[in-house]
Design a protein around this nucleic acid. Sequence first.
DNA 1: GCAAAGCAAGAGCAGTGCTCTCGTTTATGG
DNA 2: CCATAAACGAGAGCACTGCTCTTGCTTTGC
Lengths: 247, 247
Amino acid sequence: MSAIRGARERARSEITAAIKDEARLQLARDGAAKLSLRAVARELGMVSSALYRYFPSRDDLLTALIVDAYNAVGAAAEAALAAGDGKAPAARWTAVCRAVRDWALAHPHEYALIYGTPVPGYTAPLTTVEPAGRVALTLLSIAREAHADGRLVVRPVDSLPRTVHTDVERIAAEYAPGLPAPTAAALVAAWAQLFGLIGFELFGQFNQVVEARDAFFAHAVRSLAHQVGLAGPDEEAAIPDEAAAGT
Amino acid sequence: MSAIRGARERARSEITAAIKDEARLQLARDGAAKLSLRAVARELGMVSSALYRYFPSRDDLLTALIVDAYNAVGAAAEAALAAGDGKAPAARWTAVCRAVRDWALAHPHEYALIYGTPVPGYTAPLTTVEPAGRVALTLLSIAREAHADGRLVVRPVDSLPRTVHTDVERIAAEYAPGLPAPTAAALVAAWAQLFGLIGFELFGQFNQVVEARDAFFAHAVRSLAHQVGLAGPDEEAAIPDEAAAGT
DNA sequence: GCAAAGCAAGAGCAGTGCTCTCGTTTATGG
DNA sequence: CCATAAACGAGAGCACTGCTCTTGCTTTGC
């Protein structure tokens, strides 16, 4: 994918990019449901059928946009992680969460495309699974590094069901060897819950309920970090829960 | 809405119901995006333009379905709450959460309609906000009653931002007077997070990540209850794995 | 009993995704 | 160098969509 193979191939990749750009524009403006192949082609000065030389169907165009969106939010998360290098795990956690939320607020339709309702009969092709995992892996890496640095608070969780244990052990083994299963389970839950918070804010569920969006999100995300065990040593002292559990 | 005003009005309400039923059928089968007025009309043996006598536009039909869906999931939640009357707050919490999830799994497209991406340029009319609040109010009432019974564990939350405090105070004042602000804040967060968990499971984000869906959900929901402060002292020991003495 | 309102039907408009055909251009292999 | 195959753009066309308007018919209410 390096050398210039010829004028045709270069033109092809340029046109493909132009189509995606225009499609992304319309996506951001009107949403995924109103994305029209004909409108994209029209805007690009070509006829609709010509577009099918580049994307075999509307769904394939959407898939390309989905992959891009996953990569964009993943890159935002990773950048926030890298920017917070050296800081306390809890701070990095909040930074990454905030980055994801900021991206979502800035690109609501793209967010909806990947974390909202999947398009009708559409099942995500395998090309999307790797980009889709970037945010999750970013969050996971925070816990992994915190664990490696001995800064992870592993709290005695009321016994983890065995089936869940095997699920999270499999994940931990692959991406964060040594990570305690309860932490991994809490992380997966926090991961899903994070997008619950963002989705509710973005899709209007918080209207007339939560007005202080920023502060509420920050508060909730801090709570999530605590739930995972990422609470920094400074703010950890607050909560000595009633020790009412044993494995 | 009681007396039979006449044959015409009865026919009208019957046809309206038939349209909604058929639309709900197609919604469940193909999803909201593929819901076609013409197809509904065709299936009912009428011509498409006739359908506009009953619903002025496709969006209005969708709105009707949205209201129905909110009421359905709300009713499911309330039923679960009523069924668990007298039980420990945590048990009632999990029961309600489970009921919402069960409803979602049984009606994925209807769930997506109300908790997924909002339809394109669509802004929810005011008729939807009351039904939309039923699940939230059900969850809130658990905390309210637990608080009234002195079974609410109010844990010292690291200081609640003042703006968030006023938000949740407003909610508490209206629906659960006396409920501590930290609890109310935790509840709102848990509410959103609950739908994060359900959405991720339903929309495929848990594919190849979490396989033990039931157990994971139960675990996560228990954790949410604990976060809100609903963990009853008796409930704490009741785990499906080790058959300990429950309530 | 009659005017008004409600109603079903049909035609029609503008738009959609997608397919097929038809010339043209480009790249490649003999 | 040139012929063949592949890629390409344009256009017509199909089946579908939401929605509007007109035309008659039926029910309702005064």
